[in-house]
């Protein structure tokens, strides 16, 4: 068999896998462009005629005001990302530049904490947030998010920092720079891609998180997008077309961010397992 023929076979296989893999997404987009009556028509259509772009406008500006939860999410996720990096970066630095008793245990702890599902911690977290009087506030959600993202961020960042050569930093110290200045002037710029990765990881985590706002937020004005999505499952009837439009809107920011950093993620998770 010649090389071309062989590759044709690969393409056919790949395309058929992707056809299955993208099926739900196609359904989502298609449904988001239907009318309420259209979603129940049988046999179903793939391309609604005419496509109801108005659904998106309805969801965003209409009575659901999906723009509000969207911006809530944006605020929560951005702040979570910022705080996470501020907390995690110095810690990752310490873990790669100092040797001290308990360093390995600390690394293990970080790894372990990142494995927790919020479900396990939520009862305890609820109490903390309650005693800080932060229930039903953005701050409450943000600090809880940070608790769950910081360990992973430390892990990702220390993986990155280990590959930043010491020599540059040391040159600065020889010149009489203090360590903190050295970090800010030299290490931080050099590890910018790693920092971006940790920030985006935290952003996406916060953007997708459902359980924390579900338990902590009761004021409807404070709901993030993930929680607001569940609104379309009304007491009476599920407005699938509008829900799907909102779903598409919710997915977009993550998709855009992700396309920048997916490569780094793999390295982060595999740190150690793959030599490059």
């Amino acid at each position: 068999m010649n090389k071309r023929g062989k590759h044709l076979w690969v393409h056919i296989l790949l395309l058929s896998i992707f056809a299955v893999l993208l099926f739900p997404v196609a359904v989502m987009v298609s449904t988001s462009l239907k009318t309420f009556a259209g979603i129940f028509s049988w046999p179903p259509t793939w391309i609604p005629d005419p496509p109801q772009w108005a659904n998106y406008i309805q969801v965003w500006f209409g009575p659901y005001q999906f723009s509000a939860p969207f911006f809530n999410s944006l605020f929560i996720a951005t702040t979570t990302a910022l705080i996470t990096v501020v907390l995690a970066f110095p810690a990752a630095y310490a873990l790669t530049r100092f040797s001290f008793v308990g360093r390995r245990s600390l690394l293990f702890l970080m790894l372990m904490t990142q494995m927790f599902s919020p479900v396990i911690l939520i009862v305890g977290l609820y109490q903390i947030v309650q005693s800080l009087q932060l229930l039903n506030t953005f701050t409450g959600i943000i600090i809880t998010n940070c608790a769950l993202t910081a360990p992973m961020a430390v892990w990702l960042l220390q993986g990155y920092l280990r590959n930043v050569p010491l020599a540059l930093e040391q040159a600065a110290y020889v010149d009489g720079c203090s360590r903190v200045t050295g970090i800010l002037r030299i290490i931080l710029p050099l590890s910018a891609p790693g920092v971006a990765m940790a920030a985006i990881y935290s952003f996406i985590f916060a953007w997708n998180e459902l359980l924390i706002p579900l338990i902590f937020i009761s004021d409807s004005q404070l709901r993030p997008a993930s929680l607001a999505l569940t609104d379309f499952v009304g007491q009476n009837v599920v407005y699938w077309h509008e829900m799907m439009a909102a779903s598409v809107i919710t997915t977009l920011p993550v998709a855009i961010l992700f396309s920048f950093v997916q490569r780094f993620f793999i390295q982060g998770f595999m740190s150690g397992a793959v030599k490059e």
């Binding site: 501020v86 907390l87 995690a88 110095p90 810690a91 630095y93 310490a94 873990l95 530049r97 100092f98 001290f100 360093r103 600390l106 904490t113 927790f116 396990i120 911690l121 009862v123 305890g124 977290l125 109490q127 903390i128 600090i143 809880t144 940070c146 608790a147 910081a150 360990p151 430390v154 203090s178 360590r179 903190v180």
Partner: peptide, 28 residues
């Protein structure tokens, strides 16, 4: 000391995590 010790750098995250992770686990 920020020059010699890792604790300066670790302190914020450790403090934060003991309040937001260790304590909740203890409660649970």
């Amino acid at each position: 000391s920020p020059e010699k010790s890792p604790f300066f750098y670790l302190l914020p995250v450790l403090l934060f995590m003991s309040v937001m992770v260790a304590y909740p686990i203890a409660r649970v």
